[in-house]
């Protein structure tokens, strides 16, 4: 796999190639025909045993990734990063420097791939879009009253349209966890559908905020709701609550995505976000992807890591792998 930015497939005009939207076979579309049918479907999904799922990911975490495979994994991880800033204190200046970092994570080393996307609030999309023009790095915008999602559908859709109007290539929406936990599944699904409609050609990432869903069974059900609603990506977390992304949650989401493919639908990607700060963490996710769903998901179109400080750790580890000596955090720019 080549990860050089220069070789990244870029459409004329600088927009990253858009894979066809996730497909939903007719049989699956049926299950969303009524609240009752949807409930039956979601409760008919095989359960997830918490202890078993956690043991599986703990076992995979003991994989020892060394030398060439580590280098590959670091570059793969860099290319999958959605470099993110979602602070109330964000400014155009902060976003501009983040975009520069996204294009060339290490300006002194052109072999370092650029990241997959920059992820910002809607009002900063235009800034990012301008900075990233021609780079192949996508602009993702959170929307739908991120992070809580506590707003009317009209406001949420306006939020989405705002981001799209500013040029967002990707939209990261949040589901209504309150409605989900109340069992108003069709309502959750229809909201995703509405955002999907609004997104047009932009890619839709659906944030489940798994830390608020309490169980892996709920993560699996919410994953299916998002996929039935037309998600291109399942995303774990806003990064604003704890726990955020965890390996078992990612396992359950990857399995759901694989099941959709097996049912003739998809493909749907997975984005893990929140709390992934070290190369070791990132590699554990890549191992999980590798051994759960395999090659098809080992690319930025199918797997993303939402992060900010992770990128520098990847760069430091990359330097260590290449030069043999441990790097200093001052070797790389903060943003």
């Amino acid at each position: 796999m080549s990860l050089d930015a220069s070789e990244r497939h870029v459409e004329p005009g600088g927009r990253p190639a858009r894979v066809a939207p996730a497909f939903l076979p007719a049989a699956l579309a049926e299950v969303a025909s009524s609240d009752a049918a949807l409930r039956r479907f979601l409760h008919g999904l095989p359960g997830v045993d918490q202890v078993g799922a956690e043991l599986r990911t703990a076992a995979l975490s003991t994989r020892s990734i060394k030398s060439a495979s580590k280098l590959w994994a670091i570059d793969a991880a860099i290319s999958m990063v959605d470099l993110t800033t979602l602070e109330g204190a964000d400014t155009p200046g902060k976003v501009r420097s983040l975009c520069a970092k996204a294009r060339h994570p290490d300006p002194q080393d052109p072999t370092v791939p650029s990241v997959a996307a920059v992820c910002v609030y809607p009002d900063l999309v235009a800034t990012a879009k301008k900075e990233l023009a021609g780079s192949g790095v996508a602009v993702a915008s959170v929307a739908t009253a991120f992070p809580s999602g506590r707003s009317s559908l009209a406001v949420k859709l306006a939020d989405v349209r705002d981001a799209l109007a500013a040029g967002a290539d990707e939209v990261d929406m949040v589901i209504d966890r309150g409605a989900f936990l109340q069992g108003r599944f069709l309502e959750v699904l229809e909201e995703v559908r509405a955002v999907r409609e609004a997104c047009g050609a932009a890619r839709l990432k659906v944030i489940l905020e798994t830390g608020e869903l309490a169980t892996y069974d709920n993560v699996r059900r919410a994953s299916w709701l998002a996929m039935l609603g037309g998600a291109d990506f399942l995303k774990t977390s806003t990064g604003k609550t704890s726990p955020a992304a965890t390996l078992p949650v990612a396992l359950v989401m990857l399995e759901a995505a694989r099941e959709l493919t097996e049912a003739g639908g998809g493909p749907v990607g997975v984005k893990v976000a929140g709390g992934i700060r070290t190369t070791k963490d990132a590699i554990r996710y890549l191992v999980l992807v590798n051994e759960t769903v395999g090659d098809a998901w080992l690319q930025p179109q199918m797997f993303r890591i939402g992060a900010s400080s992770l990128l520098n750790d990847l760069l430091m580890q990359r330097a260590k792998q290449r030069n043999g000596a441990y790097a200093s955090s001052d070797d790389f720019s903060l943003e």
Binding site: R63, K66, W72, D295, L298
Partner: peptide
């Protein structure tokens, strides 16, 4: 190799 893209180097 498991997949093909991500091969694990020997880690004895």
């Amino acid at each position: 190799p498991v997949g093909g893209l991500f091969e694990y180097a020997p880690a004895p």
